[in-house]
Design a protein around this nucleic acid. Structure first.
Lengths: 158, 158
DNA sequence: TTAATATCTAAAGCTAACTTTAGATCAAGT
DNA sequence: ACTTGATCTAAAGTTAGCTTTAGATATTAA
């Protein structure tokens, strides 16, 4: 197989529409693989563009970089991901999307019920309590499952 | 009408399942109304419990406190919100939920298409580019519309 | 070869959303 | 009156996710 063409950090930045500093940051955080040129500059396989795109999409969905790193860990670091690699990842991701849709749908129904019923006691009905308190009880060692449970992991709480 | 019973900050904290420091923080940020006792302690109308619950739900959906403050600004500050007040707010909120569901549904379809077609060029297809770049072009003075456009406003970018 | 442009590192700075700390005052029960 | 627990303020600390800065090298184009 032909060796993969390597590109500069500026190239990745332009192609993904981001600042160079962000690409460098992701590289330092181990979210994207890179090697060094003889002079010390970073060199990336072209496939990193796709990886960065995925990161951006996942972030938009509410995933933290730590979560995304876990998701991406199923991709190979030493070789360019094949279609099968991405397909496997996308299956997992797809399940998460479906879970989010389901959660939003149920939130919508609850909200309509709560306002509609006249009780006005948002704090006591299923809306907030049942979903989130359960997630908060997790043992702590279940990253992806916790994602599915809490659905919108945007919380910055400790 | 009977004057609304006022409660302490600790009461609100316990009822909503949060730290006292958070309630104080929200009060300082103007997210929840409060008055002072003769001694200087904060006193809240009971209805603040519902308001806090709403804030937590909205945060879970990905809204920033600034966005939530805008959403809540339709509620009266000087009197306890009526069912009609909450119903109006929930209608707006509901539209946002629907928009998010639609965005996720389309993301799911795009992802399936992208992986399935074999092109593997996530960076060039509709997935990331069309949705987000458009949102990034907003003039800047359209808070709620921007929310609807970008769907998952979790971005911390400037 | 030389000037312009791109990268590099390390450290500091920034925003959001909170929590923690310290020292002081309030409120309640006995 | 006294002690205990709740609150108060102001300021500093924390985490995530970046950007900015400064000064030094690498790369590229002419």
């Amino acid at each position: 197989m032909a060796p993969e063409p390597m590109v500069s950090i500026g190239f990745i930045a332009k192609r993904t529409g981001n600042a160079v500093s962000l690409i460098r940051y992701y590289a330092n955080e181990g979210l994207i693989p890179s090697v060094r040129t003889s002079g010390g500059n970073r060199a990336f396989p072209r496939s990193v563009i796709r990886r960065v795109s995925f990161i951006l999409i996942a972030q938009n969905m509410g995933y933290s970089l730590a979560n995304i790193k876990d998701l991406l860990s199923t991709l190979p670091d030493n070789r360019t991901p094949t279609q099968a690699d991405w397909a496997k990842l996308s299956r997992v991701f797809n399940e998460h999307i479906e879970a989010k849709i389901a959660a939003l749908t149920s939130l919508k129904a609850s909200l309509e019920g709560c306002i509609g019923c006249g009780c006005l006691s948002l704090e006591r009905c299923r809306l907030y309590n049942s979903d989130d308190k359960v997630a908060a009880q997790g043992s702590g060692a279940q990253l992806l499952d916790e994602n599915v449970q809490s659905q919108f992991l945007v919380s910055h709480k400790k």
